[in-house]
């Protein structure tokens, strides 16, 4: 089932408007493979029809297309380094500042997807209780995709998924077995609040946060959108906070709201 350039452009425009994700040319294969299941679910027979329907789509169809186009496979403790930095740099320093003013420490995972990243952060929080020394910590996990967040909230993963990045020790400490699947234990789940959120819209409901994980999201935005989103993120952050971006993401020429840290090129601190 091939797709005309015109159809591709129309769907790509819809995805960009809804999610900020700019699909470059030549992503037709990705679009086809991700949207074909959505089309059969909604009984839509061709990409031309889909493009037409998106002009006046039901919210269910809009959400399904956004979910399909924005969700990527994830795994626990992905890339490892960000989590080492979280435990060794971010948590101890922010905790010190927080203890001085007696406030709780808030972490925001801005592209939570199916939950592997917020749960990895929650595991790291629990493993660093000595550093935190009784400090109140909470994690806000947001994503644009309702379907992904549903998985995240359920905390239920297949045997394959839990083996991607999770050590056996962490698995049996923080997960219960449920038939052939595994579910996060309440002690981990209760550290996290899940919320649907589009980064292109108002971020006020995020509240004040200290540590922000926003990895591999900005990479899909154009420079103006990046700058706008980063400006909004900055407004939600405490001055002593940290922003962790993905490995391929730099802010050179994008914004002066953040500066890279000496510790790592993808770890940033807000400018005041």
């Amino acid at each position: 089932m091939g797709m005309q350039q015109q159809t591709y452009n129309a769907i790509a425009r819809f995805v960009a408007q809804e999610s900020g994700i700019k699909l470059s040319d030549g992503k037709a294969y990705m679009m086809e493979s991700r949207l074909t299941p959505v089309m059969s679910e909604f009984g839509i027979s061709s990409f031309e029809h889909l493009a037409t329907q998106l002009m006046a789509a039901t919210s269910e169809l809009r959400q399904a297309v956004v979910d399909a186009m924005t969700t990527n496979e994830s795994f626990f403790f992905r890339d490892r380094t960000p989590f080492d930095l979280f435990s060794n740099v971010m948590l101890p320093r922010v905790a010190e500042a927080k203890r001085a003013n007696g406030q709780p420490l808030r972490i925001w995972c801005a592209a939570a997807a199916t939950g592997q990243e917020p749960y990895s952060l929650a595991i790291s929080v629990l493993e660093n209780q000595t550093v935190l020394d009784g400090l109140d910590v909470s994690i806000l996990a947001t994503d644009i995709s309702q379907a992904a967040l549903g998985t995240a909230e359920s905390g239920r993963y297949t045997q394959f998924e839990v083996q991607r990045g999770l050590s056996a020790q962490r698995l049996i400490t923080h997960f219960d077995q449920e038939g052939g699947a595994w579910r996060v234990k309440p002690h981990l789940r209760e550290l996290i609040e899940f919320k649907e959120l589009n980064l292109l819209k108002s971020l006020h409901q995020v509240g004040k946060v200290d540590i922000v994980f926003c990895r591999n999201v900005l990479i899909y935005f154009d420079v103006e959108t990046k700058a706008q989103v980063l400006g909004n993120i900055r407004k939600q952050m405490s001055n002593t906070g940290y922003l962790m971006l993905g490995a391929a993401e730099t802010l050179v020429g994008v914004t002066d709201h953040f500066l890279p840290t000496a510790e790592h090129q993808n770890l940033f601190q807000p400018t005041s």
């Binding site: 045997q159 083996q163 050590s167 056996a168 020790q169 698995l171 049996i172 219960d176 077995q177």
Partner: peptide, 22 residues
């Protein structure tokens, strides 16, 4: 692939544990 076996293996001195299929 149950918690009991994983715990037993780690206690016996295994460093990691992988469940089939992988």
């Amino acid at each position: 692939n149950d918690v009991g076996h994983i715990a037993m293996a780690l206690k016996a001195g295994a460093n990691e544990y992988m469940m089939k299929p992988f």
